[in-house]
């Protein structure tokens, strides 16, 4: 089954001569199922929708290989149990005591906390909140979860693509730490925005005008003008994806060569 997922994703976790398909499955069977919790804070549900777009390939995985032990829409549970991994969607509202408490509790009860999506990772769109709105006018400030707790890994994106979620899940199950390293590094990237391209790439004489940032921008806030990214701040949601996809921000050479079979 794992082999099928990997084949679908074009991933090869281990060389064939080291581990046959049966052996991998056996290991998977013998391992205790990881207990996953889904914590939904201030996000639009886009991240869990992106996750669920993988159901074709992840259905067996989600039902047979992991236990979903907590989550508003995924499990009928009131008390937060102990978890191996807590996936957190959404930023945390400082004025919402329930969100703050749930986040703190998740940190206590989870082995690993993963910020799923840019709201949790960078604050993203919710950074623009000014408060004063209906129902909860005092809900004014929304911050990335790493402002309050230690985050082990982040998957930014608005939403993160179904593929990156699937690739990450597979890497977690295979213990493929090399693949996960960028996600671990990104846990510290909380102040994101289109201007990162200007400050950290263009101003640093690293931009080559390839256009990857403008291709990646999920709100089309970027144009290319005279071979350089030009940011329309009105459209930027501060998700960080432009900088993350830029080939001049970080360069995963080994993984790329492996994926291409070079």
């Amino acid at each position: 089954m794992i082999a099928r997922i990997k084949e679908f994703l074009g991933m090869e976790a281990q060389p064939k001569e080291v581990a046959s398909e049966q052996e991998v499955e056996k290991v998977a069977e013998e391992k205790a199922k990881p207990r996953i919790g889904y914590i939904h804070l201030s996000g639009c549900t886009g991240d869990v929708m992106s996750l669920s777009e993988n159901y074709d390939i992840l259905a067996p995985l989600l039902t047979e290989m992991v236990d979903i032990v907590y989550g508003q829409t995924l499990a009928d549970v009131w008390e937060m149990p102990e978890m191996d991994v807590a996936l957190v969607e959404g930023s945390v509202c400082l004025q919402d005591e329930h969100s703050v408490k749930e986040l703190m509790e998740a940190r206590e009860k989870a082995g690993l906390v993963v910020a799923l999506g840019s709201c949790a990772a960078t604050g993203c769109f919710t950074r623009y909140s000014r408060g004063g709105q209906q129902a909860n006018p005092n809900h004014e400030s929304f911050v990335p979860i790493a402002d309050l707790i230690k985050v082990d890994a982040a998957l930014p994106g608005c939403p993160p693509s179904p593929e990156i979620i699937a690739k990450t899940v597979v890497a977690v199950i295979n213990g493929d730490m090399d693949y996960l390293q960028p996600m671990i590094d990104l846990a510290g990237y909380t102040e994101a925005g289109g201007s990162d391209l200007q400050y950290k790439v263009v101003n640093q004489a690293l931009c080559i005008g390839c256009g990857t940032c403008a291709m990646a921008c999920q709100t089309r806030a970027l144009d290319m003008t005279s071979g350089r990214p030009e940011l329309n701040e009105d459209r930027c949601v501060k998700c960080g994806v432009c900088y993350i996809q830029c080939p001049r921000s970080w360069w995963p050479a080994d993984r790329i060569n492996k994926d291409l079979g070079l």
Partner: peptide, 20 residues
């Protein structure tokens, strides 16, 4: 450099949905 941007996007498609 453009090849590198594409290959990085294929290996790590963080925000790039169904393009890789």
């Amino acid at each position: 450099c453009q090849t590198m941007g594409i290959r990085k996007m294929q290996s790590y498609p963080f925000g790039v949905r169904f393009m890789a």
